[in-house]
């Protein structure tokens, strides 16, 4: 099932002008397999788009080898490539007065004749693509009436109608809201399994990529490209190293990133379950370290979901009952000065 379809050897990407050779990235060694979703991650300007453009033969490589399905990329003609690589781009195409199915039908262009007329077989393939992306409800709509997420799904259906073994997507989720991002990524993951296509996409949605992608490529200026499953990269420290910077913390237990808060004060937190974690999260955001391992006089009792409200215990005061976290935080803020500093507790 899993098969290497793209093999990259010592590849250099960049731009050639008359008297200048601008290398964006070099010494890239990697391969991409079919039946998998591979995500390319990296900061802006590191050369993700250049790499994708080079792989799609939109611009020439500066050196090295790219082998697609066992053959050098350069040995294919434009016509042949249009049947091997399908692309979905970031750019929002401002097409007006075109029906969804007409646009997907244009994906058949490499196969249609001189006038671009679709045969009954072509129509069947278009219907199939619509079915695979589950956008039957969009048929008959004009492109300009679609939301950004729907439009990207239509472009993915176009790539499917193109019947290429390889699909490249350049930040397909860039302008989408969160649910649409998740939907598109899951769709791509499902398609890679169902159709056994090689799907390679660049993205900035780190969290999603780490949860959904089968393979992750980390691209950066100093180390070049590191590849592997998100889990392996997490274990060997590549991920935490890759995004190591102030304010971001890689949580090795979950294999995901979270924001690293700085704590000024501490408080004891008793309880369990969801209520416990929510109070902890809220307090962390406010710079207060909360844990059941902290032994101080001030404490919050959350109980579990069966109990209503929260109880704040302070020395020399009666226990304070509040019903919402918002009130709890306000009460704690009032006494912030009296809380013990977080630094001392760490010792």
């Amino acid at each position: 099932m899993k098969k290497e379809t793209i093999h990259i050897e010592d590849l250099s990407t960049g731009y050639l002008t008359k008297n200048n050779r601008k290398v964006v990235a070099e010494h890239i060694h990697a391969s991409i397999c079919s039946g998998e979703l591979t995500c390319l991650l990296g900061a802006n300007g590191v050369g993700k788009s250049t790499l994708l453009r080079t792989l799609s033969a939109f611009q020439p490589k500066l050196g090295g080898h790219i082998r697609l399905l066992g053959r050098e990329l350069e040995s294919y003609t434009d016509k042949q490539l249009s049947r091997i690589i399908g692309v979905v781009l970031t750019e929002k195409c401002d097409i007006r007065n075109m029906l969804v199915e007409e646009l997907i039908g244009l994906g058949r262009s490499p196969y249609t004749g001189f006038w671009g007329k679709l045969t009954p077989e072509d129509r069947e393939i278009v219907d199939n693509a619509i079915h695979q992306v589950k956008i039957e409800h969009l048929v008959g709509r004009m492109i300009q009436t679609l939301s950004d997420g729907e439009r990207q799904k239509v472009m993915i259906a176009k790539a499917l109608a193109q019947e290429t073994p390889i699909i490249f997507l350049d930040e397909p989720t860039a302008f989408l809201d969160f649910p649409s991002k998740v939907e598109i990524m899951q769709l791509l993951h499902r398609l890679s399994r169902e159709t056994d296509k090689t799907i390679f996409m660049s993205t900035h949605d780190l969290e999603l990529a780490l949860q959904i992608a089968d393979q992750v490529w980390l691209m950066d200026k100093t180390n070049g490209i590191t590849t592997g499953t998100p889990e392996d990269l997490s274990l060997d420290g590549s991920l935490s190293h890759f995004f190591a910077r102030k304010g971001i913390m890689f949580d090795k237990d979950t294999g995901l990133f979270r924001i690293d808060n700085e704590f000024t004060h501490a408080i004891r937190l008793d309880g369990c379950g969801q209520k416990y974690s929510m109070v902890r999260k809220a307090l962390q955001r406010n710079g207060i370290l909360a844990s059941r391992h902290v032994g101080v006089n001030y404490s919050v009792e959350t109980g579990n979901l069966d109990k209503e409200g929260f109880i704040l215990h302070c020395p020399d005061e009666e226990a304070l009952h509040v019903s919402r976290i918002e009130e709890l935080i306000a009460e704690i803020e009032k006494r912030r000065g009296q809380l013990p500093p977080a630094e001392e507790l760490k010792k």
Partner: peptide, 23 residues
């Protein structure tokens, strides 16, 4: 009128048109 397929592809923008085999 012979250019209709070319024109239809150009509607998609250069990137997509090129990917669909248009020079």
């Amino acid at each position: 009128c012979l250019l209709v397929k070319t024109l239809n592809l150009l509607l998609l923008g250069d990137g997509y048109a090129r990917n669909l085999g248009l020079n």
